[in-house]
């Protein structure tokens, strides 16, 4: 994945569901190849932000620009074609399809041989390639969802709580795999420690607005900041 692509700029974004506004005047920038953690308490608008980026909510104002291309008026599929890869909180694997068939749906016209990339990143998926999506454990479903998004060669990957409900050992495995990625990433995660270890920049939300923005390393050291906006203090 080329790192000179994937610059995402969000300016004055206001969005929600129907007339209900969840995020207000949100602005942030992810440089090409950058990693940003989007943090906040439950219900502050993190998932809505990602869903808005991929065109699944009602946008009331603001712009979303990927490598200079305005995405705001495009539909979900066009945004994905433009380079946004999305791994939703619900994982959304196709339960009636096998692992391999699920991966094929993410190929975007690439040859089937590209599936080996997914199996190299997550060998467990290779072992389970003939199993149905509904037969996988939570961790395997998350691997599948991430791998399927990556097969489309996105320039920006949006991850919505990928570690939710996973055993620590699976979280380690997943974060190791994610740390090898070279594209831009926006990570929404409740495990603040892991998110701050992974990201270079952090944005904190409260009631749909940005309340803090800065380097992840600084945020990690500022316990008062973390306690004020997230209600947690990371271990170590």
């Amino acid at each position: 994945m080329s790192t000179n692509r994937g610059r995402l700029e969000i300016a004055g974004l206001t969005a929600g569901y129907g007339q209900t506004r969840i995020i207000e005047n949100l602005s942030l920038t992810v440089p090409a190849g950058g990693r940003l953690a989007l943090l906040g308490r439950n219900g502050v608008g993190k998932t809505t932000t990602l869903a808005t980026l991929v065109g699944q909510t009602t946008r009331h104002g603001g712009t979303i620009t990927l490598d200079g291309v305005e995405l705001g008026r495009l539909g979900s599929s066009a945004r994905a074609a433009a380079g946004l890869g999305y791994v939703p909180q619900t994982r959304d694997v196709f339960r009636s399809l096998t692992v391999e068939e699920n991966l094929v749906t993410g190929l975007k016209g690439r040859p089937r041989s590209a599936l080996e990339e997914a199996y190299a990143l997550f060998p467990r998926l290779g072992e389970r390639r003939r199993n149905g999506g509904g037969e996988l454990s939570g961790g395997e479903q998350q691997m599948l969802s991430v791998a399927r998004a990556l097969l489309g060669q996105p320039t920006v990957l949006l991850l919505d709580e990928p570690l939710e409900g996973l055993a620590p050992v699976i979280c380690d495995l997943l974060m190791q795999a994610l740390s090898r990625l070279s594209m831009s990433v926006i990570l929404v995660e409740q495990q603040v420690d892991r998110a701050l270890d992974f990201a270079e920049e952090v944005v904190m939300l409260d009631r749909g607005r940005v309340v803090h923005q800065g380097p992840a390393a600084e945020a990690r050291a500022d316990h008062a900041l973390l306690e004020r906006h997230l209600g947690v203090v990371p271990a170590g």
Binding site: A81, F94, T105
Partner: peptide, 12 residues
């Protein structure tokens, strides 16, 4: 099964 997911994967 899930049209929104297909759209998010780049399909129409």
């Amino acid at each position: 099964e899930d049209p929104l997911r297909v759209a998010a994967l780049g399909g129409s």
